[in-house]
């Protein structure tokens, strides 16, 4: 225990990663480390490639036929783009929460049980019940929905839907959770709840969050990466980035000169 306090464990590493859609280069030569017990925030103006980069981390760019990824991304030292990497396994280990809450048109229970079912994590119904309850508790949603688990997930409020999606993601016990602007479709109160949740989940999962909102990045993350025009401009401790940026462009962005 004492050892890990001082020595952060590297969870994911990206080296010289570039992404192109057809002939258009979206990400140019980005290298980043994500530690085991940290929240990393990606900030930058629209179209800077931060979401694209996030999606390379669990190979969601595979669904875009024209996308080409070069460079090396490792999860626990294993190259996730190597031919023997099973995408199904990878995505079970690296979960994702999207910009717009996207619960399946199924019951709340079935939404959370979806991942455990497809990955065969629960043998008996009782196991599945336990996983669903645990995930909903961790997502801070249990008390609000425990009496109506069979209601449709789409009937919840926007903020509840997003927490349901987080519960769904953590139900398969991932190691990393990627969040692509998880609060951009939510009101301030729902946003505060999600941020609180990120604090609580920290340490259990490594997290990467893309956000448009710089205060949010400052509030929830330990490290911040600033992207601009497909390049990683600056990456460092959040406190340094916001109080003492090394790069002029970073300073201009966080002080609101553009973006």
């Amino acid at each position: 225990m004492t050892k890990s306090l001082k020595m952060p464990i590297l969870k994911m590493t990206a080296r010289n990663v570039s992404v192109a859609y057809g002939s258009k280069i979206a990400i140019n030569n980005v290298s980043i480390d994500v530690d085991q017990d940290e929240v990393v925030a990606f900030i930058g103006p629209s179209g800077c490639g931060k979401s694209t980069f996030l999606r390379t981390l669990n190979r969601m760019n595979d669904t875009v036929a024209s996308a080409r990824v070069t460079g090396e991304i490792k999860l626990d030292g294993q190259d996730i783009y190597s031919p023997d990497m099973d995408v199904v396994q990878l995505r079970a280990r690296v979960g994702m929460v999207f910009q717009k809450p996207n619960p399946f048109p199924k019951s709340i229970y079935e939404n959370v049980a979806y991942g455990p079912r497809i990955h065969g994590l629960a043998g008996a119904k009782a196991d599945l019940d336990r996983i669903v309850e645990k995930s909903l508790r961790r997502a801070g949603l249990w008390d609000e929905v425990k009496d109506r688990l069979s209601d449709s997930g789409t009937a919840l409020s926007g903020g509840q839907q997003q927490r349901l999606c987080i519960a769904r993601a953590i139900a398969v016990d991932p190691e990393v959770i990627l969040m692509d602007e998880p609060c951009s479709a939510l009101d301030p109160i729902a946003t505060a709840k999600i941020e609180e949740l990120i604090h609580e989940l920290r340490g259990r999962y490594a997290m990467v969050i893309v956000t448009h909102n710089m205060q949010q990045a400052a509030r929830v993350s330990q490290k911040t990466a600033f992207f601009h025009l497909g390049s990683l401009v600056e990456y460092g401790n959040t406190s340094d980035i916001f109080t003492n940026p090394r790069e002029e462009r970073t300073k201009d962005y966080i002080t609101g000169r553009y973006g």
Partner: peptide, 23 residues
């Protein structure tokens, strides 16, 4: 987003179709 959500859970294409898209 439904399809992405399911794929991001580690479901295969056919699982996504059977369990999310078709319903």
């Amino acid at each position: 987003s439904m399809r992405d959500g399911s794929l991001a859970m580690g479901a295969t294409s056919s699982e996504t179709i059977r369990r999310v898209l078709l319903p």
